[in-house]
Each structure stands twice: as C-alpha cells, then as structure tokens.
Design a protein around this nucleic acid. Structure first.
Lengths: 342, 342
DNA sequence: TTGTACGCGTTATCAA
DNA sequence: TTGATAACGCGTACAA
C-alpha cells in the first residue's frame, strides 16, 4: 500500500520504456491506443500513484502553500484554516501552517522558513506587531504570489480578502446605541493593523449617525506586547477610572471581548448591568452566555476559501497578475440580549 | 530571496565540484579545512538553503507527517494541532492536516491521500464512525509509523497517547455527586470509540464509590450519524421523558456539552436549576457562563506534542519498534458553580 | 583531499 | 509510435 510503485516498475512489467508509460499516463495522444490501454489498466491494477516529490523537483513547484497566522487555537483562525484546507485539498495543494504568536520576529522567521520549503505561495494574516512589510514587498516585486487575508498590509499591492470590518463595527456599535447606550467605549487591536482602523471608522460612523460625539478617551488599543490579559486589565481600569465612565464597550476582537468579560466579572461587575459588551467574535458558545452576547461574526471559513482560491489562481496563472483585487466579505450581526439596557 | 541557490551555483562560483560543496556543507571531515571554510562562508553569504524537495527525493523521505482528525475548528483539536505543529516545526517536519468530519469513508480517503503524498508517518484520531481499522493494521504490519492520539484503536499494537479518560470522567461525575446529585445521566460519544468506554467506566466507578446504582436508561450515546444537534435533542427528550428524570448530566464530549446546554436553554430550562451539567470540554470561554461550567479539560496541546515526538522518534529509528507504549495524560478538573445543587 | 558519475521518479526533447 | 537520454538538486560510492 505505501511502498511506491514507479513508472519504472510498470515499464519493466510491460516490457516498454518509461517514457511510453509516462506518455500513456499523461494522456498524450502520440501513443498507440492499445499500448495506452495496457499501461492504464496495469497502472490501475497495481494502484500506481505518481510520486509528488519527484514531480515537484521536476516542475520546480512544491504544490504546497504556506500559511502565516498568529494562532491556530483561535476560533477565527481555526475556521479560516478549515476553509483553506478544503480548497487546497481539492486543488492538490497541501498547506503548511505557521504561527507568529503576534511577534514580528517569528513572522519573518516563518516566512523565511516557508520560502526555504519552496512553497508556491503565501497566505498571510499579519501579526499585531508587524509594521515593516518590506519582506512581502520584496517578494511581491519578484512576482511571488501572496494573498493577505483578514489582517492585510495597506501599502502592498496584491490580492486581499477581508471582512467588511467597517460595516461590522458600524452594525455592532449601532446595536448598542439602539438599546439605549450612548457612552460607548471602543476596545480594539493594535493600531498597526488596518482592521483596527476600519473597525474604529465603523464605530465612529455609528456614533456620528446618531449624533454622539466621539471621545478620544473612550478609544483603547491593545498591542499584544505582553500578556493580553494584563493589557486588557490595565485598559479597563483606565476606562472605569474616567469621570464619565462608559456604559458599554464595543470590542474589536475575539480575544479582547472574552478577556474583558472575564476581568469585569472577576471584579464583581455585572455584564451587562454595570457595563454592557458587544464585539467581534467567532466563538459559537457565546450564545450560551447569560445573557447571550451580541456579536459580530466574520465568515472565517469563507474568507479562508476565497483567499486560497485567489492564491492558487495566482500561482497557476503564467502571466504576472496585473489586476489585484480586494474582496470584501460581509460580516454577520447577531443581536442578543447582552446589549439591552437594563 | 526565493530564487533557489543550489550547490551547483556555489561550486561554479568557487571553482570546485558540487561534491566538495556538499561535503563541506555536511561537515564531512574528508575535506581541506580552508576549502571547507571558503564554501561555508560563501554559502552563508548568498544564503544557501538546501532544497528540501531534492533531499526528499534522494532520501525517500518526505519529512512530512499526516494528521487525521475529525475537525480542525474544534477547541480540542485546534489545541492539539498547535502542539503537533510546535514539535514538528522544531524537528524539521511539516504537517499535512486532513479532516474526517466523523465519516469513515473520508477517513480512509484521507489516509490514502496522505500515503500517496508519501508522508513519513501518521498521527490519527479516529472518526466516531470508524469500526474497521484494517487499513491501519495493514500499514502497521508493514512497519509504517502510526501514532494514535485521543481516539485510539483498542486492537492495534502501536504507540498511543490518550488522556486519562477514566479518571477525568470519574472526577467530573464525582464533582456532581459531591454537590448533592445522585440521579446523573451520562451523555457520550459513539460506542465505537474507546474513549467512550473509558469515560463511561469512570462515570460508573464514581457512582459505584458513592453507592449509586447505575441505570442503563441514563446512558446515552451520540453516534454523529447526522446533525449532532438533532441527535442531542432526541436524546435529551428521551432523558426528560423518563419517569425518574435525571437531575444532572455528565457529558463525555465538548460538542455534546455545548449542544445540550443550548437545547435545554432553548426549551426554557435553567442550567443548572432544572438540570445541572458538567462535562469534557476544552473551550476556554465556558468559565464565562453564568454560572460557570464545571468541566474536565484535556491537555490537548501536550497530547499533540507527545504524539508528535513519539511519531518522529519511530520514523527516525531505523530498527522496527518492538515496544509500543500507551501514554496516559492526566486531565484537569475545574469545579465551578454549575455543579452546585440549587 | 577532491572530482566524476550515478540514482532518487518524473517529464521533455530528441532520435529512431 | 516508441525509446534513449537529459534534467530537476542532492548525497555518496568510487575513482583519481
């Protein structure tokens, strides 16, 4: 079953040359019909499978794609990887996953490692720390296929697949406003990330639409410098120490949403009640919170699929791609009682 | 950066032969000290990286390991994959992940696919549907390295890494008993899975220790035949229709725990209150349930790491392994107020 | 100490 | 229509 049958074995068994076998297998027409049939039947019989490694060496393609994400054990990314796998599998690619743990150094090391593995292309979601995108620029300039998903580099000219962060954030914030809150803080990821900007804009636009003035002291970033829990704790302390405390928080990330609730509960505050929370998350158990959480969900699986399709298309197109597209995928707002004013 | 530098390039640049370069790079001592130095310095300078594909072809090793799990987007498995990746990465292996979605057919297709990819070994967690393990037996008999983790085949003689399901289940059930429940149902995975047996035994032993009689009608399996949600709904209906309804449920799986709570809440039942729940899960947000859930957590990351280490050790040992080990990893009981009797 | 030649499995090019 | 051969990048047995 796993000991490899090669075209040599077939050639020897059938008394033909390896090139004949190769031609028969690859459907080339410059071959005798009966010879072809013979080879195909025998190949089928002994369950011949071409050796992908030899193919790779020959074609100078690894048929693998590299994935750079911050964390695998994360609802959003595990769902995205699911989507990536599903497409890659069908197209005959395999996927090498690497994690940055939000560190720029690990991110560059991962990219180098993947390159030394001769991956045919890269699927990247930037780390929160990353500001220097020159390595990607370098690769892109040489025509190396890279597709960014979710956390894209704003200045790089390539394919991108991202959620409609503006709209998602707008909707989530508006849900809080609709249930009577006007003092709404915004807790979000590193300012380095484009998604943070987009989500802030959505938040801001929602305030604007409802005639609520934006207060700079209500905007808090977490840069994932150290332990996320400590960072969130600090930021929440600052928010609660304000003269005019926020009544609600709209959170721009899964991890921040969960951390916040956890900390606030630890402090004995009721969520909602003392303070309401809504935010981005892809966890499917937040529905079971009491009360269930109002969330903005990203179509992670679909984003993974789209990015992978784009990447493979880019890899397999012989001509350098001229037109880069940015796909925006709609988010889903799920309003639950957690954003209802008590 | 990504255009490959080969030993040929180095040889040409330095006016030596490729074998000299190869020898210098591989630290062979039958080479002139200054030649060696020269080569190494130049290789470093132009950032030479051996082509892993050529190496694979030469060595008849792919330096990759295949992973078979039911689902990536699952707390337990994404954490396990994290562990797998961390070890594999360090040891120079990469990881090809496939999903069964609990289907036996997909499982065998995945194994075949991984084999045709020439993976050096397999890390397998069986699908809930799988009863026929002959394909693994066949491979193992040929000396192909396979390590099972979590969901192992009882009848196969190979390395296994599993959580101490008995103890975990015992502890979880006892936590419910300690808070005053005696009518405790057990909801668990397919009877095909060894872990289901072990978990049932743990549950049973806890009842036994506390002089509680086991009732067959309190034991319910979910076979993942169709939609898990529907299956759980059916099973819960049966439990609640009993003359002597259970006061608590000890659940033997992440998905079942979450589904149950979701359905019971949908029916307007309070959890706990009307019925208490405790169970296996690796989700880290169940702490935020109100009240927080009593759970048994598996050290998924560690299990992934151990399984990968074992597999790589098996792959790299030239002699067929005689002694197969079964590693038991302790689970962690986290008692929360959800198992307190109201 | 170094260079030449071969093989790993495959496809492509050329010759027969 | 088919076969022999080179090439992909590497390591290594063997020859020098």
């Amino acid at each position: 079953m796993f000991e490899s049958v090669t075209i040599k074995d077939i050639a020897k068994a059938l008394g033909v040359s390896t090139s004949t076998v190769s031609r028969a297998l690859n459907g080339s027409y410059e071959i005798g019909t009966e010879t072809k049939k013979l080879v195909l039947e025998y190949a089928e019989k002994i369950n011949y499978r071409p050796n992908p490694i030899a193919l790779s060496l020959k074609e100078q393609k690894s048929h693998s794609i590299g994935v750079v994400v911050c964390e695998v054990a994360n609802d959003y990314f595990s769902q995205a990887i699911n989507g990536i796998e599903s497409i890659a599998y069908n197209r005959g690619y395999h996927v090498i996953i690497t994690q940055t743990h939000e560190s720029f150094d690990r991110e560059s090391a991962n990219v180098k490692h993947l390159l030394s593995r001769h991956v045919d292309g890269l699927l990247v979601s930037l780390s929160a720390q990353t500001t220097d995108t020159s390595q990607y620029k370098y690769l892109l300039d040489k025509g190396f296929p890279i597709v960014f998903f979710d956390r894209a580099a704003p200045d790089l000219n390539t394919h991108k697949v991202i959620a409609n962060n503006f709209q998602g954030s707008f909707n989530g914030t508006e849900a809080l406003i609709n249930s009577g809150f006007s003092k709404i803080a915004h807790l979000t990821n590193s300012n380095n990330l484009l998604i943070s900007h987009e989500r802030f804009e959505g938040y801001n636009a929602a305030l604007d639409k409802h005639g609520i003035e934006f207060r700079p002291e209500y905007l808090k970033h977490c840069n994932h410098g150290g332990m996320i829990h400590d960072e969130v704790e600090l930021v929440l302390k600052e928010l609660l120490a304000l003269d005019d405390k926020p009544e609600a928080i709209f959170s721009g990330s899964d991890r921040l949403t969960i951390s916040s609730i956890s900390i606030l509960k630890k402090w004995g505050l009721k969520v909602p009640g003392d303070i309401a929370i809504a935010g981005f998350t892809n966890s499917d158990v937040v529905d079971l919170f009491d009360p269930p959480l109002t969330v903005v969900r990203q179509p992670a699986f679909q984003i993974g699929q789209m990015a992978t399709e784009m990447l493979i298309k880019t890899i397999e197109s012989k001509w350098p791609v001229e037109e880069f597209t940015t796909e925006k995928v709609e988010t889903q707002l799920i309003v639950r009682s957690s954003s209802v004013r008590y």
